[in-house]
Design a protein around this nucleic acid. Structure first.
Lengths: 148, 148
DNA sequence: ATTATATAGTTCGATATCGAACTTAACAGG
DNA sequence: CCTGTTAAGTTCGATATCGAACTATATAAT
């Protein structure tokens, strides 16, 4: 492994640590049985629109389809999403946010304000703006290159 | 939630996606029952030195102590680490890398070369160098600020 | 039309992860 | 000492996640 490769490796290591730390912070804010996967699905539906299929979500998050089945069951049980059949394809289903789901996602984000403000005292917004585009590009490359 | 906060939120979202994608890539390369937590522990021991305690590792990775017990059991079963009692504190133990553990970690990193090279074709090294310092700072802030 | 193949989703058994309670040992105050 | 508290690690039961096999439906080939 070359010296350059090690820098890439270091980058992904830093990213992994940050993801782990922020995941822990987020899950401390989420109520009862809800975890990051639940929130992430809600967030995805808000950002990219309603009506995604379970398989599409599984693919988006790189988890097995049955794991998504389980995550969606948890969301549905709590009334945060509604799953309706696809009229054009009896195999398929579509996931829709409920009002409670949208509200829950907003509240979850709000509950993180305190943490973000504390973080923002140490890391100014311009530092964030400076890295977002590069990270978005990397995310896109990884996303396009992945198999299946 | 302010507009600025949303940018922080977006950053952590990008980081979370990248971590998820790279985790999947890595676990495809790891043999049989070994997962990212196993590798991450080996990597940590190489980077920061032998002899850490199970509790210290659990704290470093923000996982419960019993989860670390389980991860270490997997590593020990495969002969990648050796766990010895602390002569000065009968409650405590120390984790040491074996030669097999060091070699395994090297091989795991090498097996990722292909993926990294493909990624490097799309994202040049200078982009990596440009963001590592900022991310390292963020990681440090998160690490210092966390509770427990 | 019939058969083969592919796709969407679920079920099942095994493993991982977690919170809570427990065990053992160190430490602190009287 | 003795007692209460803290700390390190494990055990236990519950839940999450996973790979593999299965069901049902759609698509393709002839």
């Amino acid at each position: 492994m070359t010296q350059a490769s090690r820098r890439y490796f270091e980058l992904f290591n830093e990213i992994g640590i940050i993801a782990q730390l922020t995941r822990t912070i987020m899950e401390q804010r989420l109520p009862d049985g809800l975890s990051q996967p639940h929130f992430t699905v809600l967030n995805h539906l808000v950002r990219l629109g309603d009506g995604a299929t379970p398989g599409g979500l599984a693919n988006a998050f790189q988890v097995p389809r049955n794991s998504m089945t389980n995550t969606l069951a948890g969301l549905e049980k709590r009334g945060l999403v509604e799953i309706r059949p696809n009229p054009d394809d009896a195999r398929s289903r579509h996931v829709f946010l409920t009002e409670a789901g949208r509200k829950f996602r907003e509240q979850a984000i709000d509950s993180l304000s305190e943490d973000i403000n504390r973080f923002a005292e140490k890391v100014p917004l311009q530092d964030i703006e400076a890295v977002i585009p590069a990270l978005a590009r990397m995310r896109k490359v990884l996303d396009e290159n992945r198999r299946q």
